[in-house]
Amino acid sequence: MSCPFLDYRLEANERQFDEPRAYCEAAARFVQPMRADICNDRYDLAHDSDCEIYLEHAGAADENEGKNEREPKNGTGNRSGDGDENRAGSGEDA
């Protein structure tokens, strides 16, 4: 099962792509490809234990469930304003 905050979009935030890319509805932005593996529970990864954005937003989503029923989509989330995500060369797996 993938993260309920994950969506695949061609366009958002004034960005356009040729292929649909992983977009986090919780963070309201496209996510890094490696983060998308967490969103999709791919390999040995799981959004409900490995993604801090999901963990941060899941509780709030649960609270709102009764008032504003949300259809889970395929996918995951990312923390908005997560500086590490967009920092040049913060990466690894070199």
């Binding site: 960005r15 932005r29 496209f30 996510v31 890094q32 490809p33 967009n86 040049a88 990466g91 070199a94």
Partner: peptide, 12 residues
């Protein structure tokens, strides 16, 4: 030259 990597992509 490390051309592409596996962490960030064209979203960056």
């Amino acid at each position: 030259a490390a051309l592409t990597g596996g962490v960030h992509g064209k979203e960056t």
